[in-house]
Design a protein around this nucleic acid. Structure first.
Lengths: 238, 238
DNA sequence: AAATGTGATCTAGATCACATTT
DNA sequence: AAATGTGATCTAGATCACATTT
């Protein structure tokens, strides 16, 4: 992991322009904020945050993706979020200074922008817009969780899997002539961990979907969804 | 349901003083904000928000409690939150003007404070503190959901039930000489709906806990927890 | 070698059908 | 009358034990 600060070759406004919470800023403000930002890079598998770490900054993903996870009491990994470009974490450090109760791990090589808690705090006072954008983002995140929450308590596993694939399609999907192509950021086991089910069950359910002609799995790294409507229906979105 | 505005008999600063998001205000600011607030009362069973309603205001619970819920695709009621004194909803209306995708129903007689989106919005510009408090509150709510989320995906149902009872104890519990006494805001069926399990399973699990001497159910309306430590252990909090 | 798939079992909780309480 | 409890069954998904792929 290396940290760059004030380097000439990297585009310092990149995070600022990419991140929804800064969307309302004009160019001049964007430059001001860029000056407060520190860039860091991590390799796949690096741990950005360990359980128990003191979190003193907000981190925004610039490139790559990370997973946020905890362990269940019985020792299984429970993935809370997969965060990608433009997503952020550490916002809970803004007011409280509790220690992290989760892990953040790089799923690929990752570039991030970091703003310390103090700098960010003062930023909010000078730019109330940003605070409102954050409230909005957090509101969206809550909405997403509510849906996931509702879906996870749906007893019908097929619906939950359909919802997960639709979420992936939304976030990582690329339209192709065959259908929506998804470059999976995580393994089958990771997917199972997101739903809190057994790896074997995940495999079985995906092969069923493949047999039904709804999806095509290539190499376990790529997934093509032939029939989004069918997934919508399975997920209970009518 | 009746709406009071500028009435002389009710304490207009009540919401302001009760609500964590206004905690950083001095008395003068509190009075200013109180002037922006409208009070409303609802009877048990009243629907405060219907799915599809346009939500144009933030509502803060002053007295009583409400449940926020949705329906699962297979028609079961899924309770997302039980909100009580000091909790708020409608914050998602701040920026986006999407329609509600949930219901809010009064669990008892309920008094609330309402601030319109526009008024609240301008408030955030004049009092950035409040925005930061909201960010903090939303952060907490996310943390709570993450825990619930994690717990719901724990395959061990006993742990989830223990966690639910501990949550109730925290929120509605009163210390007595026998143990923590909880006046349940919802029925067995409601509790089951919060965990997404069958009513029968809830009954069975609670009788088991009673047989083990961990809890005592009185009348199905009150629950006494004799042994909090045992619940902690069951919930996987060591 | 690690990730994934798959058959054979096992089991927790759903469902059904009532009995019992409030 | 509605909410709750409880026994008898059923079933989806976990677990185990390997085989197969990458």
């Amino acid at each position: 992991m290396k940290s760059t600060k004030g380097c000439s070759y990297c585009n310092h406004t990149s995070c600022v322009s990419k991140v929804p919470i800064f969307s309302s800023l004009d160019e001049r403000d964007a430059r001001d904020i860029a000056a407060l930002i520190e860039h860091k890079n991590y390799k796949k598998g690096d741990i950005l945050i360990n359980e128990g770490d003191k979190v003193n900054s907000i981190t925004i993903i610039n490139t790559g993706s990370v997973k946020a996870y905890k362990y269940t009491p019985d020792g299984r990994e429970q993935i809370l979020y997969v965060l990608t470009e433009g997503d952020f974490f550490g916002e809970r450090s803004l007011l409280s200074s509790e220690n992290a109760d989760f892990y953040i791990e790089a799923l690929d090589d990752v570039g991030v922008c970091v703003i310390t808690k103090e700098r960010f705090h003062s930023l909010l006072y000078t730019h109330p817009d940003i605070a409102i954008n954050i409230i909005d983002e957090l509101g969206k995140r809550i909405a997403t969780m509510e849906n996931a929450f509702q879906s996870i308590s749906v007893r019908n596993l097929d619906a939950r899997i359909a919802a997960l694939l639709l979420d992936y399609a939304n976030r990582y999907g690329i339209m192709t002539k065959d259908g929506v192509k998804i470059n999976l950021p995580i393994s089958r086991e990771g997917m199972a961990n997101q739903l809190g089910i057994a790896r074997e069950t995940m495999s079985r359910k995906l092969s069923q979907l493949e047999k039904k002609g709804i999806i095509l799995s290539e190499n376990n790294k790529t997934l093509i969804i032939y029939n989004m409507d069918m997934l919508d229906e399975m997920a209970g979105i009518k």
